[in-house]
Design a protein around this nucleic acid. Sequence first.
RNA 1: GCCCUCGUAGCUCAGUCGGAUAGAGCGACUCUCUCCUAAAGAGUAGGCCACAGGUUCGAUUCCUGUCGAGGGCGCCA
Length: 572
Amino acid sequence: MEDTLAAAVRAALAALPDLPDDFDAEAVEVEFQTPNDPTHGDLATNVALQLARPLRRSPRAIAEGVAERIEVDPTRVAAVEVAGPGFLNIRFASAHLTAGLAELLTQGERYGRVTDHDGETAIVEYVSANPTGPLTVGHGRNAVLGDTIANLLDWTGYDVVREYYFNDAGRQMRVLGQSVRARYDGIVRPDGPTKTLEDGLEVPASFPDDGYRGEYITDVARGLAEEHGDALLDAEDEAPFKEAAEKAVFAEIMATLGRLGVEMDSTFNERTLYEGDPAPVWDVVETLKAKDLAYEEDGAVWFKTSALGKTDSRDGEEEGKDTVLVKSSGEPTYRLPDIAYHLDKLGRADLVLDVFGADHIATYPDVVRGVEALGGDADAIEVVVYQFVTLVRGGQPVKMSTRKATYVTLDDLMDEVGEDVTRFFFLMRAPGTHLEFDLDLAKEASEKNPVFYLQYAHARIASIERKAEETGLDASAEADLSALDHESEEALVKTLLQFPDEVRTAAGARAPHKLATFLRDVATAFNAFYRDCRIVGEDEPLATARLKLARATRTVLKNGLTILGVTAPEQM
RNA sequence: GCCCUCGUAGCUCAGUCGGAUAGAGCGACUCUCUCCUAAAGAGUAGGCCACAGGUUCGAUUCCUGUCGAGGGCGCCA
């Protein structure tokens, strides 16, 4: 529609009298926007304002010239008007709307899918928490954002892989194993030596100072004690404890994600980057060395990021800064496997999207430099960075400490406010803003809750459909959609027909909240229609047409909620 | 010190590829159910779009600076 109109506007521009010789109407970019004010029509363009200078005449004169000469399909466009300082406002014909509505109903649960990226593949990496403990509220925002962005990409044609990257070989996991072992000691030898940590917690003497204190550690230890008795006291290292903990924690993480509606397609263990010949990580090091972008010094391997633009001005003096890839202990820093991992992903997909918190943003430039240096297409890598979540209860922030295990877990949150609310609250704000999660609004004031507003509208339509069926209305019958000429009906139809474009916009911006905002507009437009137009009780042709409109609304709400991962209930 | 994100109504936030009168929810105050779900709807009040410059026919939107909030700057992840 917009492309056709743009061509028509260009043709009209070309037909204007007394044009300068160097003016090429075909080269003019004609962009349309949807006016805020409905009296300004359905689409508007500001070409006349932009051409005022090159054409050296007033914007209104240009706009009027175009409006007089433009040729449009009268079944699609009802009017082209000049308004304000020189805007061209386009008003749709009602036949355009009924055609769109019929198409919506035909497509049903596929309505809103677009084909822009058919044939392209995307890997969305999210959650990626190492299995050291239960998922936190912060992981929740990550999981829901990643999952929903993956859904949006899917709806724009991408073949999407949802991937979880983790590492069970590092220091964190070693401490986890030691923590479990200490708890195990305490259980099988209740009279063994203990110590008191600085915050007053009494633990077995072998408990690491930076150990994990959560109750789940003791649970794993208790399970081992029940299964093996005290036989593990003589274990050579913490390996059996680590493995038991990893297995238990991973099962818990996946169960938590499942509650949120998040199902991963693939888990990628960092360890695999050290396997094979050559192993991907060492291949990265060798290749960088061969390109003179890596060198050894003080027993470590350095990535010459100074030559690629990285600087450090902490001391006031701007100077180049290199980055350690392999510590003098022989152990790589996280950057090396990250680079190898992204190269691996680029080999598997056209778009590589990472979702991570603001605290990890500094890792991204090094990965990009590494990928570029090795000839990878760094432009295909995108990062969605989200800010932290603050839980608020009674107007006060909820204090959380990971070390002391006083944080609220994602499961706790879902227990308290429900899965749908959790999901929606994480999605309704732009990723880059600090999210304030108001537990009181999420739970106690459920009728004021934005997620219920959408679900209620959907349930209300389902209720109307049940009622209509009882009174003998046939929703599948042919209907003359042109009977829908009430102001509220037309406004609702126009809103519904924006859905595919809203999907496209939200997906392109990697911004699920845009879809959430749109769905609220849909529900509001439906409520206005519900107020003004009855269905059951009207004469049959009109009632059937309105029933179709209600069905169309339900389709858009359902499809939108499905993308967001929120349920669309039949009744509430 | 430097880098990143952010600053819009009392509160939480949309909006901004530069456009015509800056929006919603919550909170406050009025109203509306003999009627398909009132978990709704109608209305009132509430804004120097942090501040100061610049670019432009036009700036909340782009640029620079200042102030304020959060995050980051390791041979930790």
